[in-house]
Amino acid sequence: MTLLALDRVTKRFGTTTAVDDLTLDIRPGEFFALLGPSGCGKTTAMRMIAGFETPDAGRVLLDGQDVAGTPPEQRPVNLVFQSYAVFPHLSVARNVAYGLEVTNTPKAEIAPRVAEALALVKLDQRGDAMPSQLSGGQQQRVALARALVKRPKLLLLDEPLSALDRKLRAEMQSELKRLQRDVGIAFLLVTHDQDEAMSMADRIAVMQAGKLEQVGTPADLYARPATRFVAGFFGEMNFLDDRRAIRPERVRLSAGGSSRVTEAVFLGDRWSYVIDGTLRATASTDCTFAVGDAVTTVWTDADLLRL
């Protein structure tokens, strides 16, 4: 079953092709991440889903219906902006009520829904506050509540964690995951941070230069990358030649041999080594070598990734 489908969507800006023949599907209730380096077209793809950009070719289907020509205000999709875009002249509660007020939702229905949405993001005590009195993290919660109160079929999140500091980011990651489970709405997360995508998403689509590289679960992408780009994008990777690669944790080290340890970094829970200047290897803390030690590197065919 498919909630949202992008069917061979292409978008050009002048001479550059931002999104190139992109085909994707998102299922109801799933946490989907669109991942790629900046400029890869992921934000443009998201803006086409929201209705702020029109595809030059291809179709955007919501519940099987082509939404071409449907303006953003009529799409059952809501967006949490990277800059939050909280209305500075409205209180927190009025911000959340906005999307209901402009669509003529009965007054009696607005107040309880706003209260419910604020409770969901743990801002129920701050309804009367003005946005300028809130921290960045709180403003983002307002933006989230404001979108969720609309009960969209799909919630779009544009780099939601990039403006938060590290501690808050980790907190918000698990919070978003919890929220998504609680409300059961499909989330589309747009991000350039692979750790973020890995830790939150059920499925990830990796994009590069406007093209889709691979779609799969985080475990799939990590264990079976389809392209060299995907292989290099998640975690560390040793490329042995054009066709074969191996993860540092799959490289086993034993003492003695013709190779030399050229770098040794202690990471607390493990050691990270560089062997002969190029090959990366990680090892548990009971497997300790010093720079200059002679080692042998060992792996089996099963450890290799074929690209």
């Binding site: 702020f52 953003p72 205000e73 809501n78 967006l79 800059s83 875009a85 906005y98 402009v102 404001r146």
Partner: peptide, 15 residues
């Protein structure tokens, strides 16, 4: 003025 405010308004259902 942040033009995203206009987009946010439209995204939330306002014409």
């Amino acid at each position: 003025f942040d033009p995203r405010l206009i987009e946010a308004s439209r995204d939330l259902g306002a014409g």
